[in-house]
Computed example of a mutant assay.
Amino acid sequence: MKSRSILACTLFTMLVAGLNFPIGKIALAFGSPFVLLAIRFIGAGLLMLPFILRRPHPRQAADWLKIAVIGLFQSGLVMAGIYLSMETITSGSSSILSSTNPIWFIVFSFLLFGVRYRIIQWLGVLVGFAGVAMTQGFKVQMEAGFWYALGAGIAWGLATLLTSRWGKLYDSWVMAAYQMLIGGVILLAASPLLEQPEFRLDPSELGKELFVIGWMILMSSIAQFVTWYYVLQNSDPGKANVYLFLIPLFGLLSGWLILGERLHTYVLAGAACIGLGIIFVNWPGRRPTDDVNIEGADSNVPANTGGTSAR
């Protein structure tokens, strides 16, 4: 019974993560990317505050700095890249490109920390990169959205690497709440510098717009975090991590169902290659020679005992 509950929670987390892409694209119709994300993360962080006040907090300035850096990458750069990308490319393509983060994770852990991986994991990197090229029809696309989404995947890999290094030092709930708050404040401060701040509610579309905002705060951030945290606490994080390949699949399908985005054959093939690459990257076996685990996901869930992040 417990295994079924874990599987249901895992699939729920991946489904919500995939749905976040078309929901985010809908939100862009009534707000600019940085303002929308600031509302999401500050709102979620404030709602979590009453539940974490009595939990252990960092005491040193260096610890708060580490949480701030995680917030900059995880809630700031990753999600800003995703939302900016959806201004010029489909939500499905954005979900595929940004979901390359587990691949970038092992690249950076090797380059920065000298972590050694097995051949099958490097094969996963190559297959994943081939999938990225395939989603673009093996052509160099100059749309800004392509580079924003790919940059989000790169930043996501770095964020996960930092979280895997530092996350065990802090209470997961405390770090999640504060990194969202810090990331939200950074995005709000950057808005007038990097975009034309905009947030408007249309009375004729008020119900839909409030639903989207509520989804971003309650589902994309809080519910998704709580569910994924439960999965990581009650299962093998390495096995749960394999399900990350479902995020771009759910992103593609939800973009097609909700927004009517076209499903090109080469995009589906590329998504399959990226998913296969992620499976290879997370293939069970001997752990790397350093104390770093392969991790993925939203940028709001810190690693815990070698876990992953959910989108």
Rank of each mutant, 00 (worst) to 15 (best):
M1Y: 05
S3I: 08
S3D: 08
R4C: 03
S5T: 13
C9N: 09
L11Y: 13
T13D: 05
L15S: 05
V16N: 00
K25Y: 13
I26H: 03
A27E: 13
G31H: 03
P33Q: 12
P33T: 07
V35H: 11
I39H: 07
A44I: 12
L46T: 05
M48Y: 03
L49M: 15
P50R: 11
I52A: 06
I52C: 09
P56V: 11
H57V: 05
R59F: 07
Q60S: 07
A61F: 09
A61E: 06
L65E: 02
I67H: 04
V69I: 15
S75L: 02
V78T: 08
V78P: 01
M79P: 01
G81C: 13
I82H: 02
S85T: 02
I89F: 06
G92S: 14
S93Y: 04
S95E: 05
L97D: 02
S99P: 06
W104C: 00
W104D: 02
I106W: 00
L112D: 10
G114N: 06
Y117F: 14
I120A: 08
W122R: 12
G124L: 00
L126Y: 03
A130W: 08
A130G: 09
M134N: 13
M134F: 11
Q136K: 07
F138I: 13
K139L: 05
M142K: 14
E143H: 09
E143S: 13
F146Q: 10
A149Q: 11
L150K: 07
I154H: 00
T163I: 02
S164M: 10
R165T: 14
D171C: 07
W173H: 10
M175D: 04
A176R: 01
A177W: 02
G183K: 00
G184L: 06
G184K: 10
L187H: 00
L187T: 05
A189F: 15
A189E: 02
P192L: 14
L193W: 11
L193G: 07
L193S: 09
E195K: 14
Q196C: 08
Q196R: 15
Q196E: 15
Q196W: 09
E198N: 11
E198Y: 15
R200G: 09
L201Y: 10
E205D: 14
L206M: 13
G207M: 12
I213C: 06
I213N: 01
G214A: 12
S220T: 06
F225S: 03
V226Q: 12
S235E: 11
K239P: 01
A240V: 11
V242G: 02
V242H: 09
F245T: 00
F245V: 06
I247T: 11
L249V: 15
L252E: 03
S254P: 08
G255F: 05
L257H: 14
I258K: 01
G260M: 11
L263W: 13
H264Y: 09
V267D: 01
V267T: 12
G270A: 11
G270D: 07
A271V: 14
A271I: 03
A272P: 04
G277S: 05
I279M: 09
N282Q: 15
W283K: 02
P284M: 13
P284F: 06
G285W: 06
T289V: 08
V292I: 15
V292F: 05
I294L: 03
A297E: 12
A297K: 01
S299E: 01
T305A: 13
G307N: 06
S309H: 05
